[in-house]
Design a protein around this nucleic acid. Structure first.
Length: 615
RNA sequence: GCUUCGAUAGCUCAGCCUGGUAGAGCGUUACCUUGGUAAGGUAAAGGUCGCGGGAUCGAAUCCCGCUCGGAGCUCCA
């Protein structure tokens, strides 16, 4: 049996005349169907009930993936040169029709010449051809079987390595983990408000929605761009320090490239599609594609392993459901650091996995999160767990608090082990930040090979690590954390190295502006972001404005300061005034931001020259 | 994607139920004020009431559709 399957916006067909004597007796009238999968079917010599069943299983499965419930079986002889007899063909078609119990199924008349008008959708899974025979063992069928068998077991693992049933675990001291574990059954939020970070991302002039783009594609204002650049630079520096080789790969790929086809076949994803010059392209949703295709073209020996490729994708795209998009938490276009390590064997993979776990912990702390803010989840197959208990227990011990465990009886995904750090916000939403996976499948899928000690080509085991998670999501977590601080009566602030302005100078009168300029010059030559409030406003007003911008150090310059070595400096963190010399202030900022990237002010130094971003 | 709520000045919002002249605060601009650690004063400018359609003598206000956003659901390779 040959099938050409098309996911259509609409099809309209009209039986014109009988083509063969045994054509079905019908009233020839036009029929139009919308939002339908059309299966053009040629029944071939040798096809039987088994083939009919297989065909319907495959059609049903792929229709589930594209989310369509309406099927039109359309007899189409031209797909094959060895057709079955018309009577056999009709009976098999009728059998297929009767097998489609979960679907709204219809069938175009058999044996008629028909005219038809068709509008096919433009996504990679929209068009699909299948050849089905009685002894067919197609990979789709395996995927179907595997998926139907997939079964998860949820546990909490404590630092002593013991597994507890989720429902029996005492969450008294682990409320964040409880939210994560019972995410689905989490009680309804009483608040009916946007999440706090959405208001803050606008108020702090970081980012905003861009209605002229697609939902989930944000615009970043100068402050936001600065913070994002610093985070990007920091994560990249850390990964390169670890040994990642930075590369750059295309953001779009051909859906019909064999590796992509095989991938989509198994893991249908939500992606943006672009048709260009007859090619069906999709926008990457991770850096995997580019890096794997690159690694495939490398000549590799076991001596080169582990090979660590790194890219900070700006952007990765996922066409998440519109209702799921919120502020900076979940986007359709996001910036994802992605580091893959090709390892020669499981021993090496595990060793590397440990290093990356430490790297991720360091990075997540570096960007300003604390482990108390995070909940860890770890997922693995039962087989992997039984063979690698010590590795898993080691990770849990390192994190020092209980973690959520998901265990699968069988492997369905491409990985055998995966962990992630989740930020649980005040509204009870959990979002994954850092993650790493052990992938035992894509080395083969992408034909990545290295030559081992015995001169044999082998496919590597691949680790997929994002040490920080999406950069936008890091900003989301920082803002949510700041909002939480506010609600607890603390002053919200950014980590000093991320603050758009680190020091603000406020002259008491315009005559002290010159002195402010000199001070600003001295401070900024030390790579500290300093600005000057040169507006004609009262001191009170200027201080208030600086405070609402969360500026860490505020210095008022007047008669006293011009003539003194040590001056009063407002410190937002300690919430008091310090008496320091400028050199001491510079030294203390240098110490606090040590090891973090430096960037210059991304706004005019003078407040009077700045546009006000009112969003 | 589904359910539901919303959109009025650059921003935050009132007005809408009960149709008849477009409102406030903040911000902006100008002038005054020359200041000491969270808002100095006066005045002016600023609106296609999200977009499109309908019923009405007449719509920001009532009805329908669309766009964008929020919440919930679903989803989250």
């Amino acid at each position: 049996m040959r099938i050409l399957q098309l996911h259509c916006d609409s099809i309209e067909f009209t039986p014109v005349k009988k083509e063969i004597k045994s054509a079905e007796e019908i009233e020839p009238s036009s029929k139009k169907l919308d939002e339908v999968v059309v299966a053009f079917v040629a029944i071939e010599d040798g096809d039987n009930s088994v083939v009919a069943k297989k065909a319907m299983l495959e059609i049903t499965e792929s229709m589930k993936k594209v989310g369509c419930k309406k099927l039109l079986l359309y007899p189409y002889a031209h797909l094959s040169s060895k057709l079955a007899s018309p009577s056999t063909a009709l009976s098999i078609l009728k059998e297929m029709e009767s097998l489609a119990t979960d679907l709204e199924v219809s069938r175009a008349p058999f044996g008629w010449t028909k005219s038809y008008k068709i509008q096919v959708k433009g996504h990679p899974l929209a068009e699909n051809s299948k050849t089905i025979t009685a002894d067919d063992t197609d990979s789709t069928s395996d995927a179907v079987k595997a998926e139907s068998k997939i079964q998860s077991y949820w546990h909490i693992m404590t630092t002593d390595g013991k597994m507890h049933k989720v429902e029996e675990f005492n969450f008294a001291k682990h409320s964040g983990l409880e939210v994560l574990a019972k995410y689905e059954s989490a009680k309804k939020r009483s608040v009916d408000e946007p999440p706090p970070h959405v208001r803050l991302m606008k108020k702090m002039a970081i980012a905003d929605y861009e209605p002229a783009s697609d939902s989930g594609n944000m615009r970043f204002f100068p402050n936001g761009r600065l913070i994002k650049s610093l985070l990007e630079r920091y994560v990249t520096d850390k990964v390169m320090e670890y040994g990642g080789l930075e590369v750059e790969t295309p953001i779009m790929y051909d859906s019909h490239h064999p590796s992509m086809e095989s991938y989509f076949h198994r893991f249908p994803a939500r992606q943006y599609n672009i048709n260009s010059e007859g090619k069906q392209l999709f926008l990457r949703f991770a850096a995997c594609f580019g890096q794997f295709l690159m690694a495939k073209d490398f000549q590799l020996s076991y001596k080169n392993m582990p090979l660590k490729l790194y890219e900070l994708t700006r952007y990765s795209f996922r066409k998440e459901q519109s209702g799921e998009l919120v502020g900076l938490r979940r986007l359709r276009a996001f910036t994802m650091p992605d580091c893959h390590a090709m390892c020669k064997d499981m021993e090496q993979a595990k060793e590397e996995f440990r290093k990356r776990f430490d790297l991720s912990r360091e990075v997540i702390k570096g960007v300003g999160m604390e482990e108390a803010d995070l909940e860890m989840a770890i997922r693995f197959t039962e087989e992997f767990y039984n063979e690698n208990k010590s590795l898993i227990e080691e990770l849990v011990k390192k994190i020092g608090k209980p973690v959520l465990v998901e265990m699968w009886k069988e492997r369905f995904f491409y990985f055998v082990l995966k962990w992630e750090f989740n930020y649980v916000d005040s509204m009870g939403k959990a979002s994954a930040l850092s993650t790493d996976q052990i992938d035992v499948e894509n080395g083969k899928r992408y034909n990545i090979e290295f030559i081992d000690e015995n001169n044999k080509p082998l496919n590597p085991i691949i680790l997929h690590n994002s040490p920080s998670g999406a950069i936008e999501r890091v900003i989301y977590a920082l803002l949510e954390k700041a909002a939480k601080d506010t609600s607890e009566g603390k002053k919200p602030q950014f980590p000093l190295w991320l603050a758009p302005t680190q020091v603000r100078l406020i002259p008491v009168k315009p005559e002290f502006l010159d002195y402010c300029e000199k001070l600003a010059e001295k401070i900024s030559t030390n790579d500290i972001r300093v600005d000057v409030d040169d507006r004609n406003e009262s001191v009170g007003k200027s201080i208030r404005d600086a405070e609402t911008e969360w500026i860490r150090y505020i210095i008022v310059i007047g008669e006293k300061e011009v003539n003194a070595e040590k001056i009063g400096i407002r410190d937002r963190k300690s919430a008091d005034a310090k008496i320091l010399s400028i050199d001491e202030l510079i030294k203390s900022i240098k110490e606090e931001t040590l090891g973090k990237p430096l960037m210059r002010l991304n706004m005019n130094k003078h407040l009077s020259k700045r546009p006000q971003i009112m969003v």
